[in-house]
Design a protein around this nucleic acid. Structure first.
Lengths: 242, 242
DNA sequence: CGCTGCATTGATGAGTGTCAAAATTGGTGG
DNA sequence: CCACCAATTTTGACACTCATCAATGCAGCG
């Protein structure tokens, strides 16, 4: 028996816009179950036409795109609250794969119900589109990072972004956050080699800005990191929860 | 007096899904006018909260993101039929600027009417979201290009993508298409230096794959280009027109 | 007819990638 | 509890792609 939406732990976090009781009830109908998966498990495959969509309830993962020569590009990191499968739901085919990096708990929706959002619940349809626009915006920033920022700027940028997202979700304690990724993941996200990523992380540690070891990222000087990364530190807007 | 939607030249191109007469009528109400602008004119500014949204009727432009150090990243190229201002309409703020590269004719919509799509015309709301997902998909591919492809692969990839989009719009004649961009635009799109972009284009010409001069791109061997670019040549899906 | 913007070419060097190996960590089974 | 193995992190040496600098050519234009 699936857990009740009204007890969903995410809905109480202030990173998210509160749902009205009616909305919660509608989402409950849309929800078909929950899924708990182990680290390394693929959630959706690039090119697949998945019948199910998900919201990450807990745990973290990555979105990645595979190229013909075997290399891969990490598109984004998946945090709790992220909606997974928008492309499958709309385009009928995922442009990237999604894979768990920790144990994850997923809220499972039926894709066939997707259209009901638009037909009967325009506010929720709007929320989905809003999330899509937010992701588009973020990907644009990533493109600017890959195209214009140097290795140290890019790594600093990534650390700032991860830290900010984590902070909004209450995952930060004493300026530290658990980071279940490997340096290879970060390297693949930034289009850098593993070796160079490692050396660049070393520089940030040397300069006492951020140190990441034992799966824990510690941020010592967020402002200076943001300056290196050429980015602003404005707070993330509240996001809807699907 | 704005031109009638039912005479819109785009609606007849087979790159787009046909609109029913009712839909055309609704779009007509949404439309507030047309705008003709000169090359170089900014259409929307990064960070702005624009009251108006657009669909490109003719002409071409670029989406670009400006960084604090003055550098810029071209996010994508704008073709006829592209919807401009989704982020402003949803997030209240553009994540990038849009600028004309040729003379452009724009269909102008009122942002305040945006919500009506979702409330009263779920099919059209769905279409908007569909376009957003398509863009998100493309940006993911761009990220893979910037992160994983070498200079020659990236340039080949860009030429293939542009050629395919142009072909779908009937802009290709004898394997040539008018390209109003400068090599600087392409360099900024790929995160390469202008000089290296120039030399890489030279290689493609040498190898008799593609030659671009005098604002005209000629593709001599699309298949070989696609192979270099590590990309498929599958036809673009029909897209909705907003 | 001298601007100004864009394309082109050559020379040089910095930033990253690649290769190889060692150090560290974590997990597994004896 | 230790031994072993796989995955990951770390370090050093070297190679190469690509950025930077600088100069020339070329076309459009007031």
């Amino acid at each position: 028996m699936a857990t009740q939406c009204k007890y969903c732990p995410l809905n109480r976090k202030d990173a998210f816009i509160d749902l009205s009781p009616e909305e919660v009830e509608f989402m409950q109908k849309f929800k078909v179950g929950e899924l708990v998966i182990d680290p390394g498990t693929p959630i959706l495959m690039q090119g697949s036409n998945a019948p199910q969509l998900f919201t990450a309830l807990s745990g973290m993962g990555i979105r990645e795109r595979h190229l013909k020569d075997g290399s891969k590009q990490v598109i984004n990191f998946v945090f709790p609250g992220d909606f997974i499968g928008l492309q499958a739901g709309l385009l009928g085919e995922m442009g990237h794969s999604v894979e768990a990096r920790t144990q994850m708990r997923l809220c499972v929706f039926n894709r066939s119900e997707f259209w009901n959002f638009f037909k009967g619940h325009p506010e929720r349809a709007f929320d989905i589109t809003w999330l899509g626009a937010m992701e588009e915006n973020f990907l644009g920033e990533s493109i600017a990072t890959l195209g214009q920022r140097s290795a140290i700027q890019a790594v600093a940028w990534t650390m700032v972004k991860i830290f900010q997202r984590g902070a909004a979700l209450g995952m930060v304690q004493n300026n530290t956050i658990a980071l279940p990724y490997t340096q290879r993941d970060v390297a693949d996200a930034l289009g850098l080699s593993l070796v160079h990523t490692n050396k660049t992380l070393g520089k940030l540690k040397e300069r006492q800005l951020a140190s990441w070891s034992d799966r824990v990222l510690q941020i010592n000087d967020l402002e200076k990191l943001a300056m290196i990364a050429m980015t602003d530190l404005r707070p993330l807007p509240k996001r809807p929860l699907i």
